[in-house]
Design a protein around this nucleic acid. Sequence first.
DNA 1: TGGCTGATGCGA
DNA 2: CGCATCAGCCAA
Length: 199
Amino acid sequence: MKLPKDFYTRPNVVEIARELIGKHLYTCIDGIITGGMIVETEAYAGENDKACHAHLNRRTQRTEIMYSEGGVAYVYLVYGIYNLFNIITNVKDKADAVLIRAIEPEVGVEEMLLRRGFQGIKPNLTAGPGVASIALGINRKHYGEDLTGNTIWVEDKSIILPEQSIATGPRIGIDYAGEDAQLPWRFWLKGNKWVSRKK
DNA sequence: TGGCTGATGCGA
DNA sequence: CGCATCAGCCAA
């Protein structure tokens, strides 16, 4: 079942980030479907989160989409190289987001290998937000994409994950965020080889 | 196996 | 100027 709009419009972005572990992310680009199970996410909690691009309700051309009603894509360029894919959550004017950091390849593996320039399947095919986007074919053209549509979407396959199979820890690469850098808002599937970092 | 670094473009 | 990254390099 494709996740409906009201999955994304709920107010607790940390809870949504945790719930997205075990869901399945797919893209259909040029008629080719690729994707797999989400195994790593991070929550970014809008205006009150120093690590969030929308901290203090910063509103620019780049962050504008974050203030939309949940259920759309926020894609931005980092380090001049990588397109990071986020899912916007919460109601209109609450700029929360979940960064998708890693998936376990499932569908369209041949295409993902092509996009990555890989000869054979390796754990880093989709482990990490930059490379996962490459494998899935996501770039800034998908800024604002409706996630209840047929280009990028998330499915609930009713996979049962015991609470203790999900690990949490500080988010990656946000040392600039002061005390907020320590918040345990990164979630991953314990022991899964497709996660970008073990701890 | 782990730490360091260059690549690369745009937002603020 | 520095960034929600990654791969390749080098030392050990």
